[in-house]
Design a binder for these strands. Structure first.
Lengths: 340, 340
DNA sequence: ATTAGCACTCTCACAAGTAGAGTGCTAAAG
DNA sequence: CTTTAGCACTCTACTTGTGAGAGTGCTAAT
C-alpha cells in the first residue's frame, strides 16, 4: 500500500521528530518545524487518516502521535534519506581497520565496541558458523613438562587454543601428531573435524590415547560453541535512553542477549534479505525484544559469512544505523578477504 | 572501640534484617523477629545510642535505622557469622574446576560468570600483572602464504596469539626465529620481554625487519594491556536489586568498571590486607563506586598473583560473599599451581 | 479542500489530606 | 538504676483534587 505525497511527508515528519525527541508529536510542532505549507488543522486530518490506516499510534486519547511498527516500516522502506557518516566517524573506523590487531577475536571485539560507540546503541557481531569455516592446521606445542598447547587455525584466521595434559610424550611425537592432523584435515569444515580427527587417530590408541581424547574433545567443543560466536557491546549506551529508564525493559533485553540462541536464531532465520536488514519491534519474534529494533548486515569471511549489527530502541536513528552497518559490512568483508 | 553485648546484638540484628529486606528497620521488627528478650522501647534506646556513636543512620527523622559504613564495618569485623556454601553451590564450583578448559582466559571468564551467578552480584577477576609473569616460549606458525601466527605462552599458561604479515619467509626461517626468541627469553618477565626481543633480533634487520617489527610491537601490546586483565561478569544481577532501580547509579558503576584502571588501582593499592578483603562504601575511594561494596581475595599463579572478587550493594550478604571468594581463592591457586 | 475556532480530553505537576510506621520522651514499674 | 508502657510527634507514602498545558476532533467559514 502506498500513501499520497502529503501523507508521506507528514508521516516522515512525525517519525523524524519522534526519533529526535522521543515525545509524542502534535500537529502544531509539525506545522511549525517542517515547512509543509499547511496549517495544523490539515495536518491533524492527515494524522487521523494515518492513524486509521495503522501508520501512527496514539498513546492516549489526546496526545500527539507516535509511529507504529508499520509507520517505521514505511519510513525505512520509502521515506528515509540516506545518511553519511561524519568525517570523525569515518576516521575512527578507518583507524580501527588500519590498526594491526592481535587476532580475529580481539578484532571483532573492538569492532563491536566501535559500532556501539558511533551508534550510541548496542553493537554486536555474529561470527561465522562452524559449518562453513574450514580447518587449516593444528599445532601441538610443548608448554611445560606435562602440558602441551594445542593451537587450531581456521581458513579465515580464527585461532583457538587449549591446554592439553600429557605424560611422557616427546616434542617430536607432538609434532608428528600435529602433522598427521594438519595434513589430513585441511579443508574439512569445522563441524565435521572432530569426527574425522577421531577416526584418524583411533589407531594410535595406547600411547597417545590421552592426547587423542583431549584433542577430539576440544574440537567438539569448538564446533558446538555457538554461544561464543556472538559478541555484544556494553549496554551503557542504552541506559541513557528514556525508553530504558524502566529497568525491567533493560533486563529483558540483556537476558535475551545472554539467553543463548535467541539473537542467533533471529539473525539466521531469514535468508533472502536486503542488506542491511532492518527489523522493527514485533518483527523480532522473540518476546523479550519485541519492542526494540535491530539493524544488521552480512559480511563475508572466506567461504562463509557473519553478521554485524546494532540493537536499539524502535525510535532509532535508522538512517545512521544503516550507514554504520553498511560501512562495517564492507570493511569487514575486505578485512577477511585480504586475510586469505 | 567496642560495644557492649546487647548493643552488638542489636546492631547485628539491624544489619542482618536490612541486608535481607532492604528496608529501614524499626525497633518493633527487631523485638519481634530477633529474640533479644527486651521490649521495643529498650531497643529504641540502644539504637539511639548506636546512632550517636555512628553505627547506624536514619534516612529521615522518623523511620527505621539503616547501617552506616561504620556499622557494616563493625559487623563484618566482629559480628558476622561464617557461612558455608550450599551443597549445590559447592557442586557447581567443583564441576567448573573439574571441567577441562580450553585456555586460561576462557577459564577465568567462566569463573567470573560462576562467581556472579552464585553470589547474585557482579563477579570479577583481575589477572596477574605483567611484571611477575614470565615468558616461556614463542612460536611462529605458518598460517597462510603471507601470514604467520605468533603464539606466546607464559609460565602460568596464559596464551596470546597474533597474526603477522610477512613476505617470502620459509617455514624453516620462521622456526629459526621462534627458536632464537624462545631460547633467549625464557624466564624473562613480560614487562621486559619486548625490549629484549628487540635487541636480540636487531641484527637480523634486512630480511626479517618486517617480522621483527611486528613481533616487538605485539610484545609491547601484551605488556601494556592492563585493560585486558580485568574480567567482569554481566551486570544483570544488579538490575534486580532495589538500590539500582535508579538507572543513574547503575550507570555510575558500569562506567567505573569500563573506565580503565579505576578498579585495578583500588585492588592493588593496599597490600597488607586480610583475605578476603572487604571494602565497604566510601572505603572505595573512587567517586563512582563510593556507595557500593567489594569483597575480594588473592589467588597465586606461579610467582605472581591475581584477584577475584564480587561487587555489590553495601547491603550485601557479606558472609556469603566471603564464602564464595574464599572458595575461589583456594581453587584458583590450586588450579594455577597444578598447571606449572 | 483548507483552515480558524472552540469545546473537549487527557496528562502532568503540584498541593492538601490521611494512614501508618517509627521515633523520643516521660513516668511508672521492676 | 534499668526496663517498659504509653503517648504525642514526625515523616513518608499514598490518595485525592485541582489547574495548566498540550493536543485532538468537529464544525463552520473561507
Amino acid at each position: 500500500m502506498t500513501l499520497d505525497d502529503r501523507k508521506a511527508r507528514v508521516l516522515r515528519a512525525v517519525v523524524e521528530e519522534y526519533i529526535e525527541t522521543g515525545l509524542p508529536v502534535g500537529s502544531r510542532i509539525i506545522a511549525k518545524r517542517y515547512r509543509l505549507g499547511v496549517s495544523p488543522a490539515t495536518i491533524r486530518n492527515e494524522m487521523a487518516d494515518l492513524e486509521d490506516t495503522g501508520y501512527l499510534d496514539k498513546p492516549h486519547t489526546s496526545s500527539g502521535r507516535v509511529p507504529s511498527d508499520r509507520g517505521y516500516r514505511f519510513y525505512v522502506d520509502e521515506l528515509m534519506p540516506a545518511k553519511r557518516l561524519t568525517a570523525d566517524e569515518s576516521r575512527a573506523i578507518e583507524s580501527l581497520f588500519r590498526t594491526k590487531m592481535r587476532d580475529v577475536v580481539s578484532f571483532l571485539r573492538e569492532a563491536v565496541r566501535l559500532v556501539s560507540d558511533t551508534s550510541n546503541y548496542l553493537g554486536f557481531v555474529l561470527g561465522p558458523d562452524s559449518e562453513s569455516v574450514t580447518f587449516r592446521s593444528i599445532h601441538l606445542l610443548p608448554a611445560s613438562s606435562d602440558k602441551a598447547l594445542l593451537v587450531l587455525i581456521t581458513d579465515i584466521g580464527f585461532v583457538e587454543t587449549c591446554l592439553i595434559e600429557m605424560r611422557d610424550v616427546s616434542n617430536e611425537e607432538l609434532k608428528a601428531i600435529s602433522e598427521i592432523l594438519s595434513r589430513n584435515l585441511t579443508g574439512v569444515t569445522m563441524d565435521r573435524v572432530a569426527d574425522r580427527a577421531y577416526s584418524l587417530l583411533r589407531e594410535e590408541t595406547s600411547r597417545y590415547a590421552m592426547i587423542v581424547e583431549q584433542v577430539v574433545e576440544f574440537l567438539q567443543g569448538v564446533t558446538m560453541s555457538d554461544s561464543e560466536r556472538l559478541y555484544v557491546g556494553s549496554p551503557v549506551n542504552l541506559l541513557n535512553l528514556p525508553e530504558f529508564r524502566d529497568v525491567e525493559r533493560l533486563k529483558g533485553v540483556i537476558s535475551a542477549i545472554e539467553t543463548n540462541g535467541i539473537i542467533q536464531t533471529l539473525l539466521t532465520k531469514y535468508q533472502d534479505e536486503t542488506n542491511p536488514t532492518i527489523r522493527i519491534g514485533a518483527e523480532n519474534e522473540a518476546e523479550s525484544i519485541r519492542d526494540i529494533s535491530m539493524v544488521y548486515g552480512t559480511f563475508s569471511a572466506g567461504r562463509t559469512e557473519g553478521k554485524i549489527g546494532i540493537l536499539g530502541p524502535k525510535r532509532m536513528d535508522y538512517s545512521k544505523a544503516v550507514a554504520i552497518v553498511s560501512t562495517f559490512e564492507d570493511k569487514l568483508t575486505g578485512y577477511f578477504s585480504k586475510g586469505r
